[in-house]
Nucleic acid binder design. Structure first.
Lengths: 203, 203
DNA sequence: CAAAAATAATAAACAGTGTTTATTTTACTA
DNA sequence: TAGTAAAATAAACACTGTTTATTATTTTTG
């Protein structure tokens, strides 16, 4: 009598198939440039079928959003080998930038895209985002234990650090660095990140 | 025999009418949520007429982009009364934030939106953006003359400052501050901006 | 095993989008 | 006034996300 169970498995399989196709198309072209029909064509089903497995395009967005955060968190928080918290924080910044330019479309949905973020506070994707941010705050606090950032509110500083990293990354991703000639851009990013690290060392 | 001249004037007038409607709709709903048909309806012309005055929707985007920068520049660089360059820089940061939340849709097209920014280096809109950035760089350099930011490359620091401001503003605008409860958000923005100013004072 | 019920997949349609083309209306000139 | 040039438009094209009514498949039941 495992029919129900198999049905459920089939359902999950189909959801995965859809998401895999969506993922691939999405990483190539970006969320807005991938249509339901594109996904349907890729998996050789009719467009309407997608709607049997996902409420709408946003639900696919959410699923990819979650996947993105999974990759992001793995990318960012596998730095246990680095003992010194400040060094770890610096390395995290580097990883943040690496992630951004390695998965630009993911960075986009995670931090830039206008999305109907009616995601309630309990949704899984949301928890991932919160976990990431929590890790940053804890790390900043740890840095304070080793003599850094004395007198600074660690929550505020965490947000400020995130903002700075996000600012550099998103300006680059969204092509707002045309004030600098092509060849200078990555150099400028590097230099400003280096300067940021220096500043963090002195405060 | 001033027919040609009047025709040209009429043409400019029509362009302005279109842009005014586009502007209003756009400020209310944002670029993506305003269609050519919306604009056409607002000015009581057929959609096809729009295409007699603008090549495509992007050309309207560019025009609004330019207008946004005009407002932005007026908003940011009317601080001649402040003598001290560092004070002026701080005030500019405040104005930047003010502008962001006063004209969120404009901030969006200027600094966030994915736009076909094939705007060549000579376009007017482009010059405006460059002018704004140039003003920032000059101001940072001025600050160095009064003893601030010693030993720092002013171009790099300018970009870093812009990045930080943009980071905070765009995370807020794009609803990425849900890690904080509603009431905390603006407080957090304020606090992190204040901390940023403090940091700039010490470096 | 055959009929009935439930489930899955789809074709077709709806209302919207940016944009183009062929046609009609309006304005100007000879 | 007739003919021409310019401006405006209706209608269409190829898309979009999404819904509905219909068909095909699978499962359950008599």
């Amino acid at each position: 009598m495992g029919v129900k169970e198999r049905k459920e498995r089939d359902r999950q399989e189909m959801r995965d198939t859809i998401l895999q196709s969506a993922h691939q198309l999405f990483v190539d072209k970006g969320f807005d440039d991938v249509s339901i029909r594109n996904i349907a064509e890729a998996i050789e089903y009719s467009p309407a079928t997608i709607y049997l497995y996902f409420k709408d395009k946003n639900e696919i967005f959410y699923a990819l959003h979650m996947e993105a955060f999974k990759i992001f968190n793995e990318y960012m928080f596998t730095l246990a080998e680095i003992q010194d918290p400040f060094m770890r924080l610096m390395k995290m910044g580097e990883r943040y930038m690496e992630f951004t330019f390695k998965f630009p479309k993911y960075y986009d949905i995670m931090f830039i895209m206008q999305a109907p973020m009616n995601c309630d506070i309990n949704s899984e994707e949301w928890k991932m985002g919160e976990a990431a941010h929590c890790q940053l705050e804890n790390l900043v606090k740890e840095c304070q234990d080793t003599g850094h950032f004395t007198g600074k509110d660690y929550k505020t500083l965490s947000f400020l650090i995130w903002s700075t990293m996000h600012g550099m990354c998103s300006l680059a991703l969204r092509d707002r660095m045309k004030i600098y000639v092509e060849e200078e851009r990555s150099k400028m990013l590097e230099k400003s990140f280096t300067m940021f690290k220096q500043i963090l060392e002195t405060i």
